[in-house]
């Protein structure tokens, strides 16, 4: 199994006629994702890579049937309206790729999603990829690269950095460790599916045997994961790396999340809290593959 995406999911692409939308729709199709419809207001009736384009999500739903997922390639100022449209139409999983979405817009999306039981990955996410199955968003960039970089295996990967999502999976793969699913939770402060939610999904996925997490300074996602482990809600072994050790307090890099707020959110605070509950935290990114191998071995998990 895998989480969030596999070959059976029927996927809509909002903004499919744009530069990014077109390119990424092709990546998804070539990798194996069932892209069944696209939506761009005012461009209904066209086709993109053989995918029919509709004016509204409701129309797409009526014409092609139920939609499991919508991937959004939409300019940030109108992401809210596109996301609410998908939620209203009944789509239960959204992948919001663009960055710079105003935070109050994200809060409104989160609120609407909660009310209808929908979920969203992002914003500011590269997406989700289940090796050998399907991809949402743009992880891997090209299908051929994605096929040569990632392969299936026992580890669930969750990351707050887009580039690092691929890097982790690639460097693990070099050691022979494959993955069930790669999730880039998104780089913003408020994201729909933060680490603790993704980790819970991995916990209930039977094929995921261990979890590898790339955390970052700022926010409380990693501390929340520690809380889950402490409460025994997550029992699978976790290996983590926290980025931003050298970052100056108050200096913010391009991830909106990397802000140090009080004690919560500091490098030291996160590492200590995770170690306290038994999570393996490595000091350098380079140690991650070996540490993961060791954990798998210790738990008798075969590759």
């Amino acid at each position: 199994m895998s989480i969030l995406i596999d070959r059976t999911k029927r996927v809509l692409v909002q903004g499919i006629t744009g530069r990014e939308g077109q390119t990424r729709a092709r990546l998804m199709q070539e990798y194996g994702t069932q892209v069944v419809a696209g939506v761009t207001p005012g461009k209904g009736g066209q086709q993109v890579n053989g995918v029919p384009v509709f004016d509204t999500v409701q129309e797409a739903w009526e014409m092609v049937g139920a939609l499991d997922v919508s991937v959004l390639f939409i300019p940030a100022p109108i992401v809210k309206s596109a996301a609410l449209e998908a939620i209203d139409a009944g789509v239960k999983l959204l992948v919001i790729v663009p960055d710079r979405v105003p935070i109050f817009d994200v809060l409104e999306i989160a609120d609407a999603a909660k009310r209808t039981g929908a979920r969203f990955v992002g914003p500011n996410t590269l997406g989700v990829l289940s090796p050998g199955k399907a991809v949402l968003g743009m992880i891997g960039g090209r299908a051929a690269s994605a096929r040569s970089w990632f392969f299936p295996g026992p580890v669930g990967i969750t990351s707050r950095s887009g580039g690092i999502t691929s890097s982790m999976a690639y460097y693990l793969a070099q050691e022979g460790i494959g993955a069930t699913t790669l999730v880039h939770v998104g780089g913003d402060v408020v994201v729909g599916l933060p680490h603790p939610e993704v980790v819970k999904l991995f916990q209930s996925d039977s094929e995921t045997k261990a979890i590898v997490m790339f955390g970052e300074i700022g926010g409380s996602q990693e501390e929340q994961v520690a809380d889950l482990v402490e409460a025994d809600e997550v029992t699978k072994p976790i290996v983590a790396f926290i980025g931003g050790k050298a970052a100056k307090s108050g200096t913010r890099f391009s991830h909106a999340g990397a802000i140090i707020e009080g004690n919560r959110g500091t490098y030291k605070g996160k590492v200590e809290r995770l170690r306290e509950v038994g999570v393996t935290v490595v000091e350098t990114f380079g140690e991650l593959p070996q540490a993961t191998l060791a954990i798998l071995k210790k738990h008798g998990i075969s590759l």
Partner: peptide
């Protein structure tokens, strides 16, 4: 740098060699 996470690790690598960073730059997102 390119991308927040990769940039942070790359900065750490430079700092660990005893250098200082004059600036931080990120060009990412294609």
């Amino acid at each position: 740098g390119a991308g927040g996470g990769g940039s942070m690790m790359s900065m750490d690598a430079v700092l660990n060699r005893g250098y200082k960073l004059a600036n931080f730059v990120d060009t990412s997102g294609n």
